[in-house]
Design a protein around this nucleic acid. Structure first.
Lengths: 330, 330
DNA sequence: ATGAAAGCGCTAACAG
DNA sequence: CTGTTAGCGCTTTCAT
């Protein structure tokens, strides 16, 4: 910046102002500065600006897995909403591991992010401590925890599964099983499993058909395998709710291999409204959680929180979810 | 840091050394410093350290879409390899848009990353200029461009499709179509389409069965739709190669809806070895590009390049790919 | 519309 | 093993 100042014959301060689009700079001077910067191959140093302004322009985000279409969509929309306001995402993958999450959050905080977005999880003691100590806004997403750290943008995983069960019961199904959600590493899966148990009890039905799907992240292969386990242990089952659409698709494909008709012999429901559920044969009944909307709402919240300097009351933004009934349970 | 220094009764320099695990610090002093830091809720400021050390610890990465299991896996392994060496990823999504890519790269460079990883694309003029001007290592991934910017970690999309065509021809197929790759926004898709045309010519077969799948990113829905178009225009087709497994799955599901047997009536091949191809009925013939390995190899390269201060010769690391023959073409 | 001085929080370099 | 000094590249503040 000093080089440009010297070359153009102004002070560094004027160069700085020119770069930030400050009004009070002579348009001609400004043009000469930008031209010289281009000529010299100058690249603005955001690190120095951050240090001086005490504003990093970063928002730190942790997700359990980036390799998941729904989390990816949340991050995508979050990124969109933030970039419009000059904020950039600093993304970290916890791999569904609370210890790794603790390590990553520690690293992220050193970069002085202006806000921290976390996918709800079972935090370690030290993580909780860091989250309590930090003065930046903390936003938990993808669930509605009973005791949130501070702000929340999410939906009730438990209630969503309840709606699926209600739908199946209303359609006449009684012998219903649930696949997944037993992994201690996936709290959202656990909430869904709990939602299943609660809903079945509410209807006075057998709530013990719980089939494990393995350690998170669980995918299609785990679904296919779990169907085998289900048929072995509970062959009278007539409907199955899965912890995600990916698991449900595994179930569908395994049924096709075994000649089990869906929904004739077995109704299937998933969770998350992934693309596969719209294309599979049969199409999949599921819950649309509007993953993108979680991201954009969180972005809006962050922007609003950063505008006001005073601490706002904890926000609790509930995302609307939709039951989508398709051929797999109709 | 000054506060801690005062509270403990040492200089800021000693605090700094204690934090970086410098050997030459009295273990007792060190312990007292860390305890006091904990007590005061001190968080190290990586921005200030970056500015002073002229090392940001960032590696900038652009991908066309984070919402793609293969790119996500590359980023995941890249992140792993880098974090072991104290480097953090600064990720940006180009959304398959060269203009957006230009904007993002400009933003990323201001953060002074120590290296830049790009998914090969058709760069804008200004992007090329920035890439030429920067002094940090630039690594292109996911293809082997004829004229790389500098370093490359990838594979030949063209050659991979050639292997698929060879396999189909060897299996007796002659009337073969290709779905996808016409989108100007997806250079890798274009390379695959070109690979198809070249391979068909090589075999002296009709190379004009090219079905568009729409603007990138193309997914399952586009595949299902393209199958309809293919049957309308080229009903004598006996095998189809798709630009990705997702498109291929769309084809498979649409065939199932229409009662078209795979591979009896139509053989299908995909690209990328996504999870779906291992679970679908029938299982999908495809090319495994080892997406994760692209990431880990790129990480290794970056670490090696940063260790040496001198400019190394451009690296060209070719990733091994595998033809996986499954039921859809057997 | 522009400039001079000071300083953000850390660490390189040197000294002891 | 510890301390002092200076400065990374920018921007705040105050002055003109």
């Amino acid at each position: 910046m000093a080089d440009i100042a010297k070359a153009v014959g102004v002070s560094a301060m004027t160069v700085s102002r020119a770069f930030r689009g400050d009004e009070g700079v002579n348009p001609q001077t400004r043009a000469r500065i930008l031209a010289k910067a281009e000529e010299l191959g100058y690249v603005f140093d955001a690190t120095a600006a951050s240090l001086r302004q005490n504003r990093s322009g970063f928002v730190a985000v942790t997700v359990p897995s980036i390799n998941n279409a729904n989390f990816a969509e949340t991050v995508r929309q979050l990124s969109r909403g933030l970039s419009r306001n000059g904020l950039q995402i600093l993304l970290a993958n916890t791999e569904y591991d609370p210890e790794e999450e603790e390590r990553l959050i520690g690293q992220l905080l050193r970069r002085k992010p202006e806000a921290l977005v976390l996918t709800v999880g079972d935090y370690t003691r030290r993580t909780r401590q860091m989250l309590r100590a930090t003065r930046i806004p903390v936003i938990e997403i993808w669930d509605l925890p009973a005791q949130p750290i501070r702000h929340v943008v999410g939906f009730s995983n438990t209630a969503c599964i309840g709606r699926l069960v209600d739908h199946l019961v209303a359609s006449g199904y009684r012998d219903i099983a649930f696949i997944g959600g037993e992994s201690p590493r996936d709290p959202r899966g656990g909430q869904r499993r709990r939602g299943f148990v609660e809903a079945m009890r509410r209807h006075g039905l057998d709530d013990t058909r719980l089939v494990p799907a393995g350690t998170a992240p669980v995918g299609m292969a785990e679904g296919a395998q779990a169907l085998g386990a289900l048929l072995d242990s509970q062959p009278e089952t007539r409907a199955v709710v899965c912890v995600s659409d990916l698991v449900a698709f595994g179930v569908i494909s395994e049924c096709q291999r075994r000649g089990i008709g869906i929904p004739g012999d077995l109704a299937v429901a998933g969770f998350g409204n992934y693309e596969i559920g719209r294309i599979s044969v049969p199409r999949l009944t599921t819950i649309d959680v509007h993953a993108g909307s979680i991201g954009s709402k969180a972005a809006d919240l962050i922007v609003a929180l950063l505008r006001q300097d005073s601490d706002a009351a904890p926000a609790r933004i509930e995302i609307q979810t939709d039951l989508i009934v398709r051929e797999s349970s109709a």
